[in-house]
């Protein structure tokens, strides 16, 4: 039985619920979860209920890493640290944007915590506004495609590199569509002492505009097109990548999502898709995916 109980208010086909379940499956019951504000927090804990079968705390949007570091310090001070894992599970907004400073501080201080970012590439809880994790040309409610716009004009922030630059002993990317791989990485992150980071790509059916049944399928396409490379970094060096045998063109990933629909209907869209393809090509080369 999952340590994330059913009966929560996640959308049918929710990627956050999947990611939360995988994290708990990987860590087991001897852990303490810290959630910043976000979908996962809101839909799992409407008072007086909680979907969490492990100790869980939510404070604010931007402070999960600081709260987690305080929990770790308290357990150490009280002599209760032993094997208990402390994991912060935050969305991309809480991680790449508003909570970045607290994460930087916690990673610099070297607390023995795991930070898992569930990246669904926009502020889904508030209605699909763009975040620092929103990819180029995704249409969101604050970066909508329009007569003179192809949507979000900015590239996705490279958060794993930022964390690695803090000297974290273990940084990995994962995807909800590759559950065994994700759980293996979360487990490894937990086993390594010090602040570790797993960045999980999580396709959101509501925000990306696809059928809830396709969450895994879309996640796989992101990996297969090199839009989301899967790799591990230990002490700043890439030590493992998931190779792609037949890399697919990015169109296959883009066309199944409503947030990129305009690229296929607007004049000039094909040229813009080339820019996205260039990102995937860079990923393939940089991470040695082929």
């Amino acid at each position: 039985m999952s340590l994330l109980a059913p009966g929560h208010r996640g959308c049918a086909g929710c990627c956050d619920a999947l990611a939360g379940k995988f994290v708990l499956d990987a860590l087991g019951s001897d852990c303490i979860v810290v959630s910043p504000t976000g979908c996962l927090e809101v839909f799992t804990t409407p008072y007086p209920e909680s979907a969490w079968d492990v100790p869980w705390v939510h404070s604010l949007f931007e402070n999960a890493a600081a709260v987690a570091s305080g929990v770790e310090a308290a357990l150490k001070a009280l002599g209760k640290k032993s094997n208990t894992k402390i994991v912060a599970i935050g969305g991309d907004g809480a991680t790449l944007d508003i909570g970045l400073q607290a994460i930087s501080g916690a990673f610099e201080r070297g607390h023995d915590i795991i930070y898992v970012c569930i990246d669904n590439e926009a502020y889904m809880n508030t209605g699909v506004q763009r975040s620092g994790a929103t990819p180029l040309y995704a249409s969101t409610t604050t970066s909508p495609a329009g007569k003179v716009s192809f949507g979000n004009p900015l590239q996705k922030k490279n958060m794993p590199a930022i964390i690695a630059a803090h000297g974290s002993p273990y940084v990995a990317t994962a995807s909800v569509a590759y559950a065994p791989d994700m759980m293996k990485k979360v487990k490894k992150a937990a086993e390594i002492k010090g602040p570790t980071y797993v960045h999980v790509h999580a396709p959101c059916c509501t925000g990306w505009k696809f059928e809830g049944s396709k969450t895994i399928e879309v996640g796989k396409l992101a990996v297969e097109t090199a839009m989301w490379p899967l790799y591990e970094m230990e002490n700043g060096t890439i030590t493992n990548v998931r190779k792609l045998r037949n890399r697919k063109p990015v169109e296959e990933y883009l066309k199944v999502q409503g947030r990129f629909k305009h690229l296929f209907t607007m004049p000039g869209g094909a040229d813009e898709i080339k820019k996205i393809q260039a990102t995937a090509d860079w990923n393939a080369k940089h991470f040695g995916l082929e």
Partner: peptide, 15 residues
């Protein structure tokens, strides 16, 4: 709040 207490919500009704 108590652990796992969302189990009171029978979300099968959403289907």
């Amino acid at each position: 709040t108590k652990p796992g207490s969302t189990r009171v919500n029978k979300t099968g009704a959403w289907r």
